[in-house]
Design a protein around this nucleic acid. Structure first.
Lengths: 256, 256
DNA sequence: AAGCGGTTCTCACTGAGTGAGAACAGTTTG
DNA sequence: CAAACTGTTCTCACTCAGTGAGAACCGCTT
């Protein structure tokens, strides 16, 4: 006779994780009440969870009383995918030194590309991607490279969904995209123009490890400079080679 | 009559967090058994926790069957202290462009400095600090700047503890360090030579926001180039000014 | 074939987690 | 200045989710 319209999977752990999940997407600080609303948990439960997480260092209470993600989570996060990030980073920086264009490194997570590293300085074009941010696979060069590395059934399934069009020029027609993906597979690189943001162009190459595309290296600059793509190709190629070589080397990590 | 020699604070949440905590310090991958040992939890409990965390995306099962921290934690971590990192980063990159020396940004967490950002390329000296890594406050320039920003009672308490000496030249005498901290407060910057690693020198300035030292900007290069410190000072100063100005600006974050 | 280190799963028991609700605090409103 | 909000903190009796010993299982090494 009650209304058990609550959430199903209600393990304690999942509740605690929901509290953390409440911060995803919502940049910055949240009040306990807002966390409760987002996590779809009762207020008192949320309150308890939040405190336990705070004590551990997973959340931090700001001066305004709102909560933020704490540095312990950040530190822990640094351990994720460390091999790729540590090995690749110095070469991304070298590439930036050479080109002074925005450099990206992204992996595929589900149906999105996740930007795991990025080099940029202050005098640059407005940013769409963010370290730790996600973008759709069909509308960026890195995304297309990552998509092209997936088996056909995955690509087809992806293209069958409703595809967002961040700019008027974004290609969303599955037939055309299928062809473009085939081109990427043939050429070994991808170039997209004004697919994610007007006046932006991106080039990308796959980083291959053990025969698998593990990530995509990308460069972004102004669309009107499209002639320069060729100029950058050897440098991109060289950077990928270095990263691949570094990845193959013995693990740096000692102990455990 | 039993032996309740188990761990005290045994809330479910704390157990789940212990599982995550097991990865701290232990770089890379762990088996379930090892996680259990590190977290001091029974095997079956650990097993359950690990699976729940895996399902959520907090842990990831590697091809070797071992577990690693997952990208969801990493993404979440990107939200921690984002304001400082986002605002400061472009200027750190500018500083690196100018100097091509290792650039650091650190905050204080407890009795250690936590490196929240770092710019370096492939042709550089061996690294001691790591993004997400911690170092003691008394043995680096950034550390001393952060320590100098604390009230006397904190400094005294810190210096009273047993201080590690990573190199033979590391100063650990509380009396001398007290004087050095006083110097930092007077001068507004800190220079340390071979305190953390032989042949390494570091310079650091505080980044002040709302009258509080929120972090320390640092430059590291070879000890024998100590004459160049003066050369870099204006550039460091300028970078700090820019960061402070950017921090003061309106929040970029929209919504929630 | 016996031993080892690891994983996966079951199940009866029980204490840790639950969440409605009350008290409290700060701020906006007429 | 009282009333209405919005949010936080805390209590407590009930009960259901979490527990962990232990067994089965797996894939190696010797």
């Amino acid at each position: 006779m009650g209304e058990p319209e609550q959430i199903r999977g209600a393990s304690v752990t999942s509740r605690a994780l929901s509290v953390l999940g409440a911060f995803e997407g919502s940049s910055g600080s949240l009040t306990v009440a807002r966390i409760a609303a987002r996590a779809k948990l009762p207020l008192s439960t949320t309150y308890r969870m939040v405190h336990e997480l705070e004590e551990w260092g997973g959340l931090r209470k700001g001066s305004d009383g709102k909560y933020q993600v704490g540095f312990r989570i950040w530190e822990l996060g640094q351990l994720a995918g460390r091999r790729l990030r540590d090995r690749a980073h110095p070469f991304l920086q070298d590439l930036f030194d050479l080109t002074h264009e925005n450099v990206h490194l992204a992996i595929r997570e589900g149906t999105q590309s996740l930007y795991v590293d990025k080099i940029y300085s202050s005098r640059k074009m407005p940013q769409v991607s963010r370290i730790g941010g996600r973008l759709p696979l069909h509308a960026t060069a890195v995304g297309r490279v990552l998509l092209a590395a997936q088996p056909d059934w995955f690509v087809d399934a992806y293209l069958q969904r409703e595809l967002e069009a961040p700019t008027p020029k974004t290609v969303t027609d599955p037939r055309i995209l299928t062809q473009l993906i085939a081109d990427v597979r043939r050429d070994g690189y991808s170039v997209t123009i004004e697919q994610m943001r007007m006046n932006a162009l991106s080039v990308s190459l796959p980083v291959v490890f053990n025969g698998q595309t593990v990530s995509a290296l990308g460069l972004v600059f102004e669309a009107h400079r499209y002639r320069e793509v060729q100029r950058f190709m050897p440098q991109l190629r060289g950077t990928v080679d270095r990263i691949e070589f570094a990845m193959a080397g013995r693990p740096l990590t000692i102990g455990e």
